[in-house]
């Protein structure tokens, strides 16, 4: 079954069951994202892929990575409201991901695109910078694709962290699939992949994360 929807003014055909993000990609519209991975189930944590959808005259904001396409749906991937969301989100995650006063990779690109002032909330960031935005790509890839469960989430709220389980390190030695997924570069630069010192469940239990 195919459905027809409108993305940024363009008529787009999509298969039923696809998400807006996938349909847009096929139609050549790139929606920015930080937690999406094509091999993983939609997760909806970064909210950078938020878009405006209009249905029966009612507009709302949804995460395009999880919202299924529908016949007649009108999608706007850029709008003043969407751009403002992306700008604020980048400003909010900038302080924890900064390396030497600069954000890196995809986040840097997005900061430029959306005019985010990465120093806006710097003086208000008083936690230890973890260099992790909890996009969970590492956790979910290890879980859903590799099946090793060597890295997981712990804690909740602002104390939520992703940590390695050293007892699983043997598998990591040869795998390292998560190294390339990390949008902030934390994993490759901070992990020794032997004991995961400073990054493990035991560090968490010792209250050091």
């Amino acid at each position: 079954m195919t459905v027809t929807l409108q993305i940024d003014g363009k008529e787009v055909k999509a298969r039923e069951g696809m998400t807006i993000l996938e349909a847009a990609k096929e139609a050549g519209v790139e929606i920015p994202k930080l937690c999406y991975h094509e091999k993983l189930k939609p997760y909806g944590a970064c909210r950078i892929c938020s878009v405006e959808v209009e249905r029966k005259g009612r507009a709302r904001i949804v995460a395009s990575c999880g919202y299924p396409v529908e016949q007649g749906l009108v999608v706007r991937t850029r709008s003043p409201r969407i751009d403002r969301i992306r700008k604020t989100l980048i400003e909010l995650i900038a302080p924890t991901t900064m390396v030497d006063g600069e954000v890196v990779g995809e986040i840097k690109k997005l900061a430029k695109e959306y005019g985010a002032n990465i120093h806006r909330f710097e003086s208000r960031f008083r936690a230890k910078p973890t260099r992790c935005i909890l996009c969970g790509q590492c956790v979910r890839y290890c879980d859903e694709v590799i099946g090793e469960h060597a890295i997981g989430f712990v804690g909740r709220g602002i104390e939520r962290r992703a940590v390695f389980f050293p007892e699983k390190a043997k598998a990591c030695l040869t795998c390292q699939a998560c190294f390339d997924l990390c949008p902030t570069g934390k994993i490759p630069s901070e992990t020794d992949f032997v004991v995961f010192d400073g990054f493990s469940i035991d560090d968490y239990l010792a209250g050091e994360l």
């Binding site: 956790v139 879980d143 469960h149 060597a150 890295i151 997981g152 989430f153 712990v154 804690g155 909740r156 389980f165 007892e167 699983k168 469940i201 968490y204 239990l205």
Partner: peptide, 19 residues
């Protein structure tokens, strides 16, 4: 059950103490 899932739950809820 994966150790990650066990720890995620044990560290998520207030009723549990890891100390």
């Amino acid at each position: 059950v994966p150790i990650t899932q066990v720890y995620q739950i044990a560290s998520y809820y207030k009723a549990f103490s890891l100390m």
